[in-house]
């Protein structure tokens, strides 16, 4: 079993756990925590796609010979994508928590079952 597969299984398990939590939990903060777990899982899977066993980080210092760089480093593109995804993720989580705080100020409840205004 190679490392990419191990990290993929971990990431997929985190996605499933977070998804299950988002669908079944009643507390709105718990739902956002479920989304945070899903985000971590997706980011792990993406970084694992670029991992190549036995290679070093994509930084061209003295450990990496410039002419043979493409055979010595791991894939830098997924890392750049995940880097920005993490920062976006925390901002979006904070915005959703703000909505929860505002909803709580209106109805004094955190349970999703108390907000049925849009239910037909």
């Amino acid at each position: 079993m190679n490392i990419t597969t191990i990290v993929h299984i971990t990431g997929f398990a985190l996605i499933l756990i977070g998804f299950w939590g988002m669908l079944t939990q009643k507390n709105m903060i718990k739902i956002i925590l479920g989304l945070a777990i899903v985000e971590t899982g997706v980011q792990l899977v993406m970084v694992a796609f670029g991992f190549i066993d036995g290679r070093t980080a994509p930084i061209l210092d003295s450990a990496v010979e410039l002419s043979k760089a493409s055979s010595l480093i791991v894939d830098p593109v997924p890392q750049a994508l995940v880097l920005t995804a993490i920062v976006i993720g925390v901002a979006v989580n904070a915005l959703m928590l703000t909505f929860v705080i505002r909803l709580y100020q209106q109805k004094k409840s955190l349970s999703i079952n108390d907000y049925k205004d849009l239910k037909w």
């Binding site: 670029g50 791991v74 880097l83 925390v90």
Partner: peptide
């Protein structure tokens, strides 16, 4: 451990 130090720093500080 997956040779992504940039992502590790971001995740530790922000996540």
């Amino acid at each position: 451990l997956m040779q992504a130090p940039d992502v590790a720093m971001t995740e530790a500080a922000i996540g």
